[in-house]
Design a protein around this nucleic acid. Structure first.
Lengths: 347, 347
DNA sequence: CTGAAAGCGCTTACAG
DNA sequence: CTGAAAGCGCTTACAG
């Protein structure tokens, strides 16, 4: 049949001995042409029931796995979606990726996650790398804000969804996220409404993205609106900084009665440090966090925090990208997933 | 030059308008053949300094990104390494992936992470999916133990490194991990040596892998060796189970003086529950965990636990796979990364 | 419903 | 140090 004038068949069959078969091997065995096998896999409704059954049986018998490299490379439209994970995968990022992957796994797109590299100066290089896989779209988890990378992506006209701070942002294409500035501002006002008089802030150093900075600025904006003096310190986003940060704040303003932490990690660790020092939380010192990590509701006292639904952020980003890749016209450029202030026992 | 008898050049150049160029476009512009461009990228030492410089400049000017799909698909040996992440990415898994990716990023292999799907009955399907990308090797994070999948992989003769329980395991190819049975056994003996008399165990339900079960059996083995009666309960691996588990244990054995938890998540949450109930830790009830999460050393009292270096597990797995893919002969089939008992304040 | 031809953009192996 | 030819395993677009 088809193999009379196709000399590749023989070669593939020979390779088959080591466990790998091609479409041609299946076609030969099933007595059909390779395109028919391709259709059985990709567009089964175009093939007659009998032919389909026969081909499927051969596929099963031979343990055939379609070479995705070849199908992606052939003239078919790319079904790859790329994302680059930040170098430090924390719980929030994991939730976000989960949200994305749950959406893509029910689509016919394959999500490729390229883990972030530690050598941080190559943010853009990671994205360029990903571009080599010819993705139909990308989700950027906005750990970096390299301008040249943003420009490259914009020029290519590739559908891109950023998960990011949305305040005052000029997105490459679409952006999904929250306003960290607004969230921090609101939490600060909330603490003031709770009756706390001297609210300090423990912030994280910026890591190539502006989330951390936005939170600090939101706190300061609220303090200005309240007519109060801002007291803030900044350190690396690790639990170990919390004890130092606490000390720094108490030196700056010994009668501080509440500390708003830019992350739950800080808040949880700082609360533990208070236990160690014999300070009562919230009676002697109240705490609020940011993020609503798993442990935030577990620790004693349970943490008052800004709840952000990272899973939803991921799935909304994925859904938005799907719409963009389908070429829908009215896809919103900026989507705010919002946040809530969750009051528990710590403030 | 080269383009006179290559009709693809024109087409590629036309596509270039929308931002994508091929090797042919670069070759034409630089006045060399496509293979030379390929060599500048892959084996620069084979090209003269002048030619190299000229080509690199054109690549840079045109923002050329090599099509990895095409290079992987062409007859070159695959430079793809696949891994499937478990559906729930916890902190340990994240560390493990980090360890892997740090190793691969300094090699010329590209790590492809396929995020796990929630529809858990398709464990093997994920791996088959990955196989379609023609990886040169795979790292299995052993969240599932599907026999048919293991058999498929074995048959193909693909280099595979499993990160897994190593006790009594017949690896597909190579395995890196610890003996959870031994670790749990040792921690139980350690608690006994600390003077605790009635040591109970809070275990997690097995999730397609046998780590959880191994820990339970290790505890029971130690109790048998000590000539004591084992008291164990089992629940879903979520912080919310800890309060229930604690109650169940106290009903089973009201004078329990130490609880060994199969995970730090349980232990941290259970300690918090004790705070809530007014029980002193470790005076009234001592706790030990498993894993040494970030928060284990932060909470008050700091947690006594089994420390397992997940990052090292990931990087050792990657290094082992690299050796297997290079065809080294003496790669050990089973590697035990070991554990340590870390004593802190909770027991 | 099924098939023959052409080509996706690279790299290998062979020449020079 | 550089290049022309062939082919990797699929799928598209065209036929019938």
């Amino acid at each position: 049949m088809a193999d009379a004038n196709n000399n590749r068949t023989g070669k593939s069959a020979a390779r088959g001995a080591s466990g790998t078969f091609s479409l041609y091997d299946i076609a030969k065995r099933a007595g059909v042409s390779p395109i028919t096998v391709s259709r059985v896999i990709n567009k089964p409704e175009l093939v007659s029931v009998e032919t389909r059954a026969r081909v499927l049986q051969v596929i099963d018998e031979m343990g055939f796995v379609l070479n995705r490299l070849a199908s992606s490379f052939s003239r078919a439209a790319s079904r790859i979606v790329g994302t680059v994970a930040p170098p430090i995968i924390n719980f929030g990022i994991a939730e976000q990726v989960q949200g994305m992957s749950d959406v893509f796994s029910t689509s016919d797109y394959q999500l490729l996650v390229s883990p972030g590299e530690l050598s941080g100066d190559h943010e853009g290089r990671q994205v360029m790398n990903m571009l080599g896989w010819q993705p139909a779209g990308m989700v950027l988890q906005a750990f970096s804000e390299s301008d040249s990378m943003r420009e490259t992506l914009r020029t290519r006209g590739l559908p891109v969804v950023e998960i990011s701070e949305i305040f005052g942002k000029e997105p490459i294409d679409c952006v999904v996220g929250i306003s960290n500035h607004e969230a921090a501002r609101r939490m600060t006002h909330f603490l003031a409404e709770c009756g706390y008089k001297r609210i300090a802030f423990m912030g994280a150093v910026s890591h190539g993205n502006d989330r951390a900075t936005r939170r600090t600025l939101g706190y300061r904006a609220a303090m200005a609106e309240l007519g109060r003096k801002p007291v803030d310190v900044i350190g690396p986003l690790r639990a170990s900084y919390a004890a130092d940060g606490l000390r720094e704040i108490m030196e700056l303003q010994p009668d501080t009665d509440a500390i708003f932490c830019a992350s739950d990690t800080f808040a949880i660790a700082a609360v533990q440090e208070c236990h160690r020092r014999g300070l009562r939380v919230p009676e002697d010192l109240a705490f609020a966090g940011f993020g609503d990590l798993d442990f935030a509701s577990i620790i004693v006292p349970a943490l008052t925090t800004v709840s952000v639904d990272r899973y939803s952020m991921g799935s909304l980003a994925a859904q938005t990208l799907l719409r963009r890749m389908r070429g829908e016209a009215d896809v919103p450029r900026v989507q705010d997933v919002g946040f809530t202030i969750t009051r528990r026992a710590s403030a």
